[in-house]
């Protein structure tokens, strides 16, 4: 009840106003939303590409962080970033149990990811990407990332 109330408020706000480069694609229920983001400035790594984010909310949102991953399909690639695995899982302290705070919301997550991509200059995947993508069976929220990079 708590989650859906808050999500309905967020949704009406998103319908009302969205920051540039962020788009609400699908929000049929209070469990899974799809958002599209693109990098606004002229970072050549992300030029002309739109990335699709999948938000999965638990019942205890916003106390618990939502699960946010990039989704790959025909028109939406996974962006190159040293903290984004090629299966779409994002290593960002904001989305982790410790880094999450209930004052964050869908919009602020999107903006954070946008700026994370904007500031990136390296076209690479995190170290051990292949291994991780091959063997990871955990859900993103259960993975214990070690946050070593404070630049992002």
């Amino acid at each position: 009840m708590f989650a859906s109330k808050r999500l309905s408020k967020e949704l009406s706000k998103l319908h009302d106003h969205l920051p540039p480069g962020i788009e609400l694609i699908q929000a049929d229920d209070f469990a899974e939303w799809l958002m599209d983001i693109r990098v606004i400035d002229s970072n050549p790594l992300y030029q002309d590409e739109v990335y699709r984010l999948k938000f999965s909310f638990s019942q205890s949102y916003p106390i618990e962080a939502p699960e946010v991953v990039f989704v790959k399909d025909a028109t939406h690639p996974i962006p190159w970033h040293p903290h984004v695995y090629s299966n779409g899982i994002i290593c960002l302290d904001l989305l982790d149990r410790q880094g999450w705070s209930p004052v964050h919301n869908v919009e602020s997550i999107c903006v954070s990811l946008q700026s994370m991509l904007t500031s990136n200059t390296k076209k690479e995947r995190p170290p051990g990407d292949e291994q991780f993508v091959k063997y990871n069976t955990q859900r993103p929220r259960d993975i214990n990332f070690v946050f070593h990079d404070n630049q992002v």
């Binding site: 109330k5 808050r6 408020k9 967020e10 916003p62 209930p102 004052v103």
Partner: peptide
């Protein structure tokens, strides 16, 4: 006047 957690 809005709480950042519940947005009410």
């Amino acid at each position: 006047l809005i709480c950042l957690i519940c947005h009410s």
